[in-house]
Design a protein around this nucleic acid. Structure first.
Lengths: 177, 177
DNA sequence: GGCACTATCTATAAGGC
DNA sequence: TGCCTTATAGATAGTGC
């Protein structure tokens, strides 16, 4: 009996969620839809983080059109104030602070860029790894199958059995090539 | 002879992800773990939102212990300044600059930390990849051997040839088991 | 304390109304 | 335009090392 197992020709009602690359969405409409969904998702995650862990969390988002959205627990302002200590509390740091501020911003932007770049590299690396492992899994499966057949003890097989075995091997050829 | 082909009695290696209620996690340790994971997740989502939709996104998180973490594209300060229109606009901005400098340094430090973290991850990933590929090379050798034999076109083999082939397969069994 | 893994839950890309 | 649905990609709770 054949190794070919008939697969049901079930029809898809939808394509389901597709994988997308993390880079700017070209279609303006799709971008807007994505923005709305992901903004909501981001704020939900922020809220969950605050509640689950008792953390203070603020998130501010500007749409490409320039519209502002925000989430803050307990409030955006409270967190921002905490994040940016008022200058009055550090009177001695004015001059040096101003200078460092400018370069710091440049470095920040650059570091953020590198952050994104590194993450991209990491994803690519993981993708490669996954492909490699997938390929390996295939080969391993073939190898295991081989081992199983070998365990059937070929030395005891007669001609007919061997021919059947050979046919099966041919079927598996695709898996290892 | 023969290894049992019976399906392995594979046991649950883990309970998998459990559903949790969104309220403060009691266990201090679990809370800390959750905080780390979800903070990373939140920043990733923020980054994706910025890239996918060309949006400006900032997120600031304070751990229960009071430690600050942030993500900003293009920068936390730029976005918060835009969100609170009063701060950086007026001319007496030297003081504000100092404030930005101070926060920028913190932000820088955090980004540098994340940068280092990512680089470490990347290195580890590459190292793992190399080890995996080494291991894979070994298995592939076995797989290639199989493929080569299959390419000899078993369908055309006579009984004698098949017997020889089977003998060879037995020899290779060690390599795939 | 971080990393790896898995099973499972959740977010969301595509589509349709 | 905005809500539903579907199917799948992605996030993560629990666990062991």
């Amino acid at each position: 009996s054949g190794m070919a197992m008939a697969t049901a020709p079930r029809r898809r009602a939808s394509m389901g969620r597709q994988k997308i690359e993390i880079r700017k969405i070209e279609s303006e409409e799709a971008r807007q839809v994505c923005f709305s969904k992901r903004r909501a998702g981001l704020f939900k995650k922020a809220s969950e983080l605050a509640v689950l862990c008792g953390a203070e969390v603020a998130a501010v988002v500007f749409s490409p059109a320039g519209k502002a959205f925000s989430f803050g627990h307990p409030s955006v302002e409270a967190i921002f104030d905490r994040f940016v200590p008022s200058a009055a509390q550090h009177p001695g740091a004015v001059a040096a602070g101003a200078g460092l501020g400018a370069s710091g911003d440049r470095n920040l932007a650059e570091l953020n860029r590198q952050y994104g770049e590194l993450r991209t590299q990491l994803e690519a690396e993981k993708a490669r790894k996954e492909r490699a492992e997938e390929a390996m899994a295939k080969e391993r499966a073939a190898g295991n199958q081989m081992a199983a057949w070998l365990d059937a003890d070929l030395r005891d097989m007669g001609e007919e059995e061997l021919m059947a075995f050979a046919a099966a091997l041919v079927e598996v050829q695709a898996a290892v090539s």
